[in-house]
């Protein structure tokens, strides 16, 4: 798979052809009388960062909830590698390689930084309560490997000096980095990022964008929900634009700038292009 950015425009379409890992078909979700998402179709391809933008209340977070199984859609389908995952719970989807983040980093405050990363490794290697008691050799070896990988992952985001501190002692920025370390540990095929740059200083934002780009280069399909247009422009291969629960445009950043509908619905509201 090439990572040429020029070809991304064609990839953003709705075809379920090669490289399309996650596909949403005509999703619909209503809360009481409010239709939050309607007729929403999008697809994510591996090695690509796909942006999802739109004004507040456009339904971006709801789409993320539907894709990750936190909420169930009223209508439509979600396909992972062409297979329907409509009826799967969040954790079942995560086990199949679809991991999401939340607007808050949501680290586990009373676990150490290292333990926060380890839990993600545990999730992949399964239960080992019995193994720990019986000191099973394979399990012990697996645990050691897990710990080694967790330490590596922490040093990659430069958090190793906080390794044995509880996560609640971390600063806001460090917690964001820890959230990315957990993602790296999970090494998912599909990553859904919910405003990972919210409230982050520009230097850290650069660092996080690098990490996002890195995930895509290692083969993940990344969906990035973000308000920071500069970030979208820098890392996204293609972008979906939502407004009032619908996808109103898709294409590369350059193409969207030309689209009148998009500019009117969203970019016209004050965002700098």
């Amino acid at each position: 798979m090439t990572s040429s950015q020029g070809g991304a425009a064609a990839d953003a379409g709705l075809d379920a052809g090669d490289g399309c890992v996650l596909e949403a078909q005509q999703l619909k979700k209503r809360f009481g009388g409010l239709v939050a998402v309607q007729d929403c179709s999008l697809s994510l391809r591996s090695h690509r960062v796909t942006g999802l933008i739109g004004p507040n209340g456009a339904g971006k977070s709801t789409v993320l909830d539907l894709l990750s199984g936190v909420e169930r859609q009223d209508d439509g389908h979600v396909l992972l590698r062409g297979e329907s995952i409509d009826r799967m719970s969040t954790h079942a989807r995560a086990r199949r390689g679809l991991i999401r983040t939340f607007q808050d980093p949501r680290v586990w405050p009373y676990l150490t930084t290292l333990e926060n990363v380890l839990v993600v490794g545990d999730a992949k290697s399964g239960y080992s309560g019995w193994a720990a008691i019986l000191r099973h050799r394979r399990a012990t070896a697996r645990q050691a490997a897990n710990i080694q990988r967790a330490v590596d992952v922490l040093s990659a985001v430069e958090l190793e000096h906080m390794r044995d501190r509880r996560a609640r002692e971390l600063s806001g920025g460090q917690a964001r980095l820890l959230a990315f370390a957990r993602l790296a540990m999970a090494n998912p095929e599909v990553v859904l990022l919910d405003e990972p740059l919210a409230g982050v200083n520009p230097i850290l934002a650069d660092r996080l964008l690098e990490l996002i780009r890195g995930m895509a280069e290692r083969g993940a399909a990344v969906l990035l929900v973000e308000h920071n247009m500069e970030a979208i422009e820098r890392v996204c291969d293609s972008v979906f634009v939502m407004s009032e629960g619908r996808v109103i445009g898709t294409g590369t950043w350059e193409e969207l700038r030309q689209s009148e509908a998009v500019v009117e619905a969203y970019l016209g509201t004050g965002a700098r292009v």
């Binding site: 995560a94 939340f102 586990w108 380890l118 999730a123 239960y127 309560g129 720990a132």
Partner: peptide, 21 residues
């Protein structure tokens, strides 16, 4: 062990635990 660690994570935030499988 992994069991206790995961359980404590569940206690701290069950939803983000489920997001990791």
């Amino acid at each position: 062990s992994a069991f206790g660690r995961t359980l404590r994570a569940v206690r701290d935030d069950p939803i983000s635990v489920s997001a990791f499988g």
